[in-house]
Amino acid sequence: MTEVLRLDAVSKVYGKGQGAVAALREVSVTIPGGSFTAVMGPSGSGKSTFLHCAAGLDTPSSGSVRLGGTELSGMDETRLTELRRQRIGFVFQAFNLVSSLTVLENITLPMRLAGARVDRAWLEEIVGRVGLAGRTGRRPAQLSGGQQQRVAIARALVTRPQVVFGDEPTGALDTMTARDVLRLLREVVDGLGQTVVMVTHDPVAASYADTVLFLADGRIVDAMTAPSSEEVAERMTRLGAYAA
């Protein structure tokens, strides 16, 4: 499998002197293409900082982040913005849709911001895969929460990104709707070869992934492949010892 994302000894420290807080401590991990990775850990373990550094939203204090062979450190904000627009997709807990735009306009927004041509065949495939055919003319307020998250997932996929980052993508959804969204993320990995990295606190959500990375006190302390929700939940209860 090709390597899509690589973190080498990434540390992130906020503040200086005695007030300094280490959010990440020499984290090294390789994410292969076409894989689904969940990142879990107690509150304050560094999950969000991991995602922000991996996605080029924040700059590590030390170490390196490579996306598809491109080194992110040393890039200025303009180049990082271009990279995120063209090569990274984002799905957040809050759907972050533009209420005045239609479903179709929300999905194609990244392309228009980048001044890129929309591939109509690809757009149709994405709309069909996320189950929004026939709803593309609606506004977000006319959709359920699950449908709005499907719009956000389609928007994340439309640029054919190298990796899609999910930040608690099912956190605002009820249990049944969350499972529909998780099945959809699983399908885009299996059916489209998409790479997905998802931060979550939910063992059930993590069980849809190929691999779960467990963070505690800013370090990756364990990893689990082919996880079940019961195994993940049990492992989470033992993370307290690392976080102490």
Rank of each mutant, 00 (worst) to 15 (best):
R120W: 04
S207L: 09
E230V: 14
A38M: 08
S64F: 05
L109N: 01
H52D: 12
R235H: 14
A156S: 12
R219Y: 12
G56I: 02
M1T: 15
T59I: 13
D202T: 05
D190W: 10
T211V: 13
M176F: 14
M224H: 07
D58W: 15
Y14F: 09
N106G: 09
F165P: 03
G69P: 03
P169F: 07
V158E: 01
Q162V: 13
E26Y: 10
R160Y: 00
G137A: 10
A133D: 10
T136W: 08
K16W: 07
E125Q: 12
D217P: 12
V188K: 02
P42F: 00
L157H: 09
L5M: 10
R135K: 07
L182R: 11
R112P: 08
G137H: 10
V188G: 05
A205M: 10
G218F: 02
T211G: 02
L80Y: 08
A156C: 12
S99R: 11
L51P: 02
F36H: 00
F95P: 05
A216W: 01
L51T: 08
L192H: 03
G128L: 14
Q148V: 02
I126K: 08
G46A: 08
T2I: 14
T59D: 06
S11F: 15
T170H: 01
L101C: 09
L24V: 07
L173H: 00
T200G: 00
A22R: 15
E3I: 13
D217W: 04
V13H: 02
V199P: 01
A216C: 05
A38G: 10
L157Q: 07
S45Q: 11
V197I: 10
Y208H: 09
T225R: 15
V10L: 06
F165V: 02
Q93H: 00
L213G: 10
G131A: 00
G134N: 15
M1D: 15
M75R: 12
R25Q: 13
R87Y: 05
P110D: 06
H201L: 01
G131I: 06
M40Y: 00
Q148C: 05
R186N: 04
V188F: 02
A38Y: 08
G15H: 06
A244E: 09
V199R: 01
Y14V: 04
L184T: 04
T177F: 10
V127G: 09
N106Q: 12
